[in-house]
């Protein structure tokens, strides 16, 4: 079965639409959303509703730090992100809030994979998996939940990386080439960071997601072009800081 792994949508409806269309065209049978549905972007309601529909049809979804922040915006915002959380909170209706509140911190995809927004090592701390050591802590924590777990899929750091366990119990970092299916056999352990659908920051404006095939044991990381100018326009129309719109146009 092919499972599309989408993370860090950040209220970017256009990017989500493009990735869903791309994933369906590539034979996706199941969707998994790895958190941060909202934050930064101009259309939180549309995105939450679309994800809620997917969830009703069987998609898995976990909570991200921006989702948590939108549920309980800080009373005294200290920065742009926290200020944005209040704006997002104000946009959402009761049903949207209820949906986000229902999301778990982790979810199991079959018996062999664990889904989490950031690190499986204390998920609510939203630790960044930025290097091999952090990946190792996340993988060890996942093994603590269930030794049968071979795959941890996450987002949060907005880049596409695949870590793999070597015989000397070290995790090695690998930068995947978009579009190339990479074999991920189950006798090793793998930690896949799927990148960000709605907030790419590596100078490439295209959306990111990954497609995991649990039969063929392969994962393919994709970059998908989408109407980023429309997404930027939506941010400006919502009256949010222009910085967020500029950023989408540059992919930075």
């Amino acid at each position: 079965m092919k499972i599309a792994l989408l993370s860090d949508i950040h209220a970017n409806r256009q990017a989500l639409d493009a990735c869903l269309t791309h994933a369906r065209a590539h034979g996706t049978e199941q969707f998994a959303l790895l958190g941060d549905l909202v934050g930064y972007g101009g259309e939180p309601v549309a995105v939450v509703e679309q994800v809620r529909d997917l969830a009703q049809q069987g998609a898995l979804c976990v909570l991200g730090n921006h989702d948590a922040m939108a549920l309980a915006p800080p009373a005294n915002p200290r920065n742009r992100s926290e200020l944005g959380a209040q704006w997002t909170h104000d946009q959402l209706g009761n049903s949207h809030i209820a949906f986000l509140q229902s999301l778990p911190l982790t979810a199991r995809l079959g018996s062999s994979a664990l889904l989490v927004h950031a690190s499986a090592d204390m998920p609510a701390q939203w630790r960044y998996v930025e290097d091999s050591n952090a990946a190792e802590r996340s993988m060890t924590a996942a093994q603590g939940i269930d030794p049968a777990i071979r795959y941890v899929f996450c987002g949060h750091v907005h880049e596409q990386v695949l870590y793999f366990l070597t015989p000397t119990a070290k995790l090695m970092r690998f930068a995947p080439e978009p579009g190339v299916p990479v074999p991920v056999p189950t006798h090793r352990q793998w930690l896949g960071i799927v990148g960000s659908v709605g907030q790419p920051r590596d100078g490439d404006a295209r959306a990111m997601y990954a497609l995991f095939d649990d039969t063929a044991k392969q994962i393919t990381f994709y970059r998908v072009p989408y109407d980023h100018l429309a997404a930027a326009a939506a941010i400006r129309a919502a009256g949010l800081p222009g910085f967020y719109a500029d950023r989408l146009e540059k992919g930075q």
């Binding site: 695949l162 793999f164 090695m172 690998f174 995947p176 080439e177 190339v180 990479v182 074999p183």
Partner: peptide
Amino acid sequence: HAHYPDLLAEE
């Protein structure tokens, strides 16, 4: 393989 993780990289 340039597009696959190099399983021998460490060894």
